[in-house]
Amino acid sequence: MLLSSLAFTSCAYIAPSGKPISGALYTGVTTSEIATSNEVGTKVGTSKAFNILGLVSVGEAGIQDAAKDAGITKISHVDSKTTGVLGLFTITKTIVYGE
């Protein structure tokens, strides 16, 4: 019953890029958001946001937030990592690489 109710709810997580990447039971996905011609560099910054029960979403998972956290001014590429269980709890992390 729980599974069928989840299947018909609208609490699926949508990635910043607009790609729906959530699994019904568990999500543990890393996807690429953007890549530039800049070299990978030696700095990595992260930002994250939470979604609880599909009702409340909080956090700052922006590319700028992640770049600011590591002092990155030249972005090489951006990954997005999503972890979620049953669509009830989701954490999305934006990981920015650059110099």
Binding site: E39, V40, V44, V85, I91
Partner: peptide
């Protein structure tokens, strides 16, 4: 179920996670 999964997620969040990325000079670990 919600409480159990919240605990599971908290345990997962506490695990040391790292990323490994290739660069021109070798691997970068984060």
């Amino acid at each position: 179920s919600a409480v159990l999964f919240a605990i599971a997620l908290a345990v997962c969040a506490n695990k040391t996670e790292y990323m490994m990325r290739p660069t021109a000079d070798g691997y970068l670990f984060f």
